[in-house]
Design a protein around this nucleic acid. Structure first.
Length: 484
RNA sequence: GGCCCUAUCGUCUAAUGGUUAGGACGCCAGGUUUUCAUCCUGGUAAUCGGGGUCCGAUUCCCCGUGGGGCUGCCA
């Protein structure tokens, strides 16, 4: 069997979004599973929509997620491209497309079209008014060779169109959907080469897929209706056609195709919020695929091992973040503190001003509470500065203010004179016949000023890592007492 | 409008021509607990409708219906 080669072909019209990530991931998994090659190809054939910087974002984001291509534009390594089939950016391959378009014209599989946008629009309007499907009427196919030559000599604006034959049924076997048939009568004479000399997606992808020896075309389901055009092109060139796998669409909450307009779908934004790359991948891979077992958490290697198109399902998946939060939490809990420390610095710059041992302790406490790294600052701010809070928060359930004040005072005294430890305080509570909640709740609030936080013993243990830990603790208790 | 794809809990999904239709997230309740989180236990909730085929269909077929995509010199 020949080499498996797949490509991910984003167009650089914005940041990489989750739909693109999912496609890239399936490309990657399929390639790795089959010892094949995973190629990145930038499909920048629309000058108007190309966004400066988008290419870098895509390449770099993929790299951050571990989906670095085997061939393609390369990320930040002094090397711009690697692979023997480049350039991997379609805007740098224009002559290839015009050459191939010319061949098609010569063989009558395509023809020059000089119709103005105005005429095309009028045609469409007429057809729609008559409840006809909008289709090009092959007007320019009727031009004589002399007329065509004259117009070309006059440098009239023109495009090249695919000459779609009538009454053919085009059938192909999709790796996800099985057999799909479409009548050529429903296929329009697609523009292949635009008047600015750039190819459309259809020409460019077919030419490149052939030239780059792509064995499997993996892309979104929205391409199914134009696959017959591509098949016609392969046939016109007398090229072998690749296998096709059309992935189910990713849907917004309103079940529409997910687009950049649906808010936070840029992968970069998820990273910025403190979603871990592994978690993102683990989440996204399940949108349209599952291992047929009950395992939920997968390493990338396990995914490579398990992946196949037989396990890709056919219907669209709603992109819903609840489960991502859960997965991210799982990954955070599994991480060791040192690793977490490295990742958290971005989100907690003040950590760098404190001893590592102190931050490690904090992270141990927060590790099982965090859903995303970006939450860390708000959660642990009391470790870095005295908390501000309403003194009412100190009152445990229905306890009286006086009781709380008295308890805090004796706790203060106890901590001041004794070693700070859980055992010692528990013993103190017991010996003085106090209610646990009436001591520990106000103590915790005095330390954190928060309604919810780790327990007071854990917090005090953490403070005690600092040379002035005990002093800090006593100050806060003291402040609480005087606020009552 | 035309063409194409698609249909199991709210969401991601599993299953088989015969099951109490399973799991996960979410949600709810309980346990642990000073609060929160973690953890544990339990609960909630689904086969779009109608015909067929069959001893038996959620599963296979047909017809509807719903949803989605495409219908650009966008990709």
């Amino acid at each position: 069997m020949s080499q498996i080669r797949v490509r991910f072909g984003p167009s650089p019209t914005g940041n990489l979004h989750v739909g693109g990530l999912r496609t890239a991931l399936y490309d990657y998994l399929f390639a790795k599973k089959n010892k094949g090659t995973y190629i990145l190809r930038i499909e920048d054939t629309d000058k108007a929509r190309t966004v400066p910087g988008a290419l870098d974002n895509i390449v770099q984001t993929l790299h951050e997620l571990g989906l670095t291509s085997d061939e393609g534009p390369y990320w930040n390594n002094g090397v711009k491209v690697r692979g023997d089939f480049g350039p991997y950016q379609q805007s740098e391959r224009l002559s290839l497309y015009s050459k191939h378009a010319g061949e098609l014209v010569k063989n009558k599989h395509a023809y020059y079209c000089f119709c103005t946008p105005e005429r095309l629009e009028e045609l469409r309007n007429t057809q729609e008014a008559a409840h006809q499907p909008p289709k090009y009427d092959k007007h320019c196919l009727k031009l004589t060779p002399e007329e065509v030559n004259q117009k070309l000599l006059n440098q009239e604006k023109h495009v090249v169109r695919l000459n779609v034959p009538a009454d053919q049924t085009i059938t192909f076997t999709d790796m996800v959907h099985g057999e799909i048939s479409i009548s050529s009568n429903d296929v329009d004479d697609q523009v292949l080469l635009k008047s600015d000399g750039y190819p459309t997606y259809h020409l460019a992808s077919v030419v490149d897929d052939h030239l780059m020896k792509i064995s499997h075309v993996i892309r979104g389901e929205e391409w199914i209706p134009s696959t017959p055009k591509h098949i016609l092109l392969y046939a016109a060139f007398e090229w072998d056609q690749p296998q096709f796998a059309h992935l189910p669409l990713l849907l917004s909450k309103s079940k529409k195709k997910l687009s950049k307009r649906d808010g936070d779908v840029a992968v970069k934004d998820f990273l910025k919020q403190g979603y871990l790359p592994e978690a993102l991948i683990n989440f996204v891979v399940f949108l349209g695929w599952n291992p047929k077992t009950e395992q939920e958490i997968f390493t990338i290697d396990e995914l490579v091992e398990q992946f196949s198109f037989g396990k890709v399902n056919k219907s669209g998946a709603v992109f819903d973040l609840d489960k991502l939060d859960w997965i991210n939490g799982m990954y955070i809990r599994k991480m060791d503190v040192k690793e977490l420390y490295d990742k958290i610095l971005l989100f907690l710059p003040e950590a760098e001003t404190k001893p590592k041992s102190f931050i490690y302790k904090i992270l141990e406490l927060e590790r099982e509470r965090l859903k995303k790294l970006s939450e860390i600052g708000e959660r642990v701010k009391y470790f870095f500065s005295d908390p501000e809070y309403d003194p009412k928060l100190l009152i445990w359930k229905k306890a009286s203010k006086e009781n709380i004040k008295r308890n805090l005072s004796s706790t203060y005294e106890h901590i001041r004179s004794q070693e700070v430890s859980e055992d010692s305080i528990k013993k103190f509570i017991e010996e003085n016949n106090l209610k646990t909640g009436e001591v520990l709740w106000p103590l915790r609030v005095a330390l954190t000023g928060m309604e919810a936080s780790p327990g007071p013993f854990e917090i005090m243990d953490t403070f005690m890592v600092l040379p002035n830990g005990k002093e800090l603790i006593l100050n806060r208790i003291n402040k609480a007492i005087s606020s009552l």
